[in-house]
Simulated scan of single mutants.
Amino acid sequence: MSKGIRPIIKNSIEFFREKLSKENEELSFYIIILISFIVFVIGTNLFVELSDEVTGNTVESFDRSVTEYVTSFRSPSLTSFFIFITDMGDVYAYIAAMILVTIFLFVKLRSWKFIFQLLGVLVLSALSNIALKKVFDRARPKEEHLVVIESLSYPSGHAMSAMAFYGFLIYLLYQIKMNKLVRIILSIAFALLILFIGVSRIYLGVHFPSDVAGGFIAGLIWVAFCIVLFNVIDLLRKRNRTEVEENLETE
C-alpha cells in the first residue's frame, strides 16, 4: 500500500505547496482539502486491503479473539446499555439527530448549507453501504445474536453511518463559531459514540470485528471525500465572487 500512495501524496503536497505560496488568502481551503485528500487516499487503500483479507477469510483468528474478549463482559446491565447505544446508530436516531442539528444550525447560522452537507454525507454513506454489503455478501456471525437483524454483515452499516454522520458533525464543530470548551466536549462525546456504536455491534453478536473496522474506514472515506468536495465548491464560489467584485470595480 505504501508504495502506491506515496507518489500520490508527494505530488499532492507539491501541488498544494505551490498553491499556498501564491494564494495565501485561500490558505484554509487548501489545508483542509490537502489533509482530507490524504485521509481519503489512505482510507481507500486500507479498505481495499481489509476487504481482500475478509474475502480471503484470513481474518478469522482476529475476529474470533476480539469477539471472545468483548462478549466475555456480557451482563444484563451492560447488554441494556449496548442495546441503547446501538439504537443511537439506527435510522430513527438519525432522523431525531438531523432534526435537532437542523434546528441548531439554522437558528445559529440562518443557513441550510451545513444541514444539506450533513444529510448528503449520511445518505451517501447509507446507499454505498447497501451496495457494498451486496458486493461482499458476507453472512452474519453464527454466535448468539442479542438483537434481531437480517441483512448482510460486511461492512457494518451502523459503524459506517456512525463514522459518516457523527464524524462529519465533528468536522462541522470546527466550521462554526462556538465556545471552545463546548466544542471539545462535543467532539469527545461524538468520538466516543462512534466507538461505542461499533463495539456494541460486536458485543451484541451481530457483527465481526472486521465488519466494524471496515465500516469505520468506509465511513471515514466518505467524510474525507465530502469535505474535499464541499471545500472545492466553496473555493470556486469564493473565486467567482472575487472576480465579480473585481469586474464591478473596474467598470
Rank of each mutant, 00 (worst) to 15 (best):
R64L: 14
V148G: 08
Y203M: 01
F114N: 14
N247S: 14
K10A: 14
F104I: 06
Q117Y: 15
E23Q: 09
S128N: 11
F104P: 02
K238G: 11
V66T: 09
H207P: 06
D52C: 13
R17H: 13
L118S: 02
C226D: 12
I9S: 04
I42H: 00
T86A: 02
S125Q: 07
E49D: 13
V70E: 06
Y174S: 08
N11W: 14
E26V: 11
F230N: 12
S77F: 14
S72Y: 09
S36K: 08
V70L: 08
F114D: 10
R239H: 15
V135F: 12
L105I: 01
T44L: 12
W112S: 10
S12L: 15
Y30L: 03
T44M: 13
V147W: 01
S151Q: 04
G219D: 03
S12R: 14
W112T: 12
L235W: 12
S61A: 10
L195I: 10
G205R: 01
T71L: 12
F225I: 12
G167R: 00
I221A: 02
F73H: 09
E143P: 06
G219S: 04
S125L: 09
A131C: 05
H207E: 05
G89Y: 07
V101S: 10
E251W: 15
I83A: 07
A126W: 11
I9C: 03
I217R: 00
R241T: 11
L186A: 05
T44Q: 11
R6D: 13
Y166M: 00
E23H: 14
I5M: 09
G167M: 01
K3Q: 13
S111D: 09
K113S: 13
L78P: 08
S161R: 09
Y174K: 09
P7E: 05
L181D: 10
L119W: 11
S210H: 03
V223H: 06
Y203I: 01
E249G: 08
N24V: 15
I130C: 08
I103E: 00
Q117W: 15
L204H: 01
K10M: 14
S75G: 07
I5P: 02
E245R: 14
F104M: 05
V232M: 14
G4D: 09
P76I: 09
Y154K: 02
L20M: 10
H158C: 05
S187C: 03
R241G: 07
E243D: 12
F230L: 15
L181P: 07
V199C: 05
I217M: 02
K133Y: 01
I202D: 07
Y203V: 01
I233K: 12
F37I: 05
N247K: 15
Y166R: 00
V41K: 07
L78A: 10
V135T: 11
A126H: 12
V91S: 11
L173S: 12
E23D: 05
S156I: 05
G215A: 03
D90K: 10
G219K: 00
I31H: 10
D90M: 08
R110I: 03
S156C: 05
T44S: 13
R201N: 03
I221F: 02
I13K: 13
K10G: 08
I176F: 07
N179C: 06
W222G: 03
F15G: 08
S161H: 07
E25S: 10
D87Q: 10
N179A: 07
V70C: 05
I85L: 00
F40H: 06
I8T: 08
S80R: 15
R201L: 00
K177G: 08
I149M: 12
I115H: 03
E243Q: 13
S12M: 15
I188V: 14
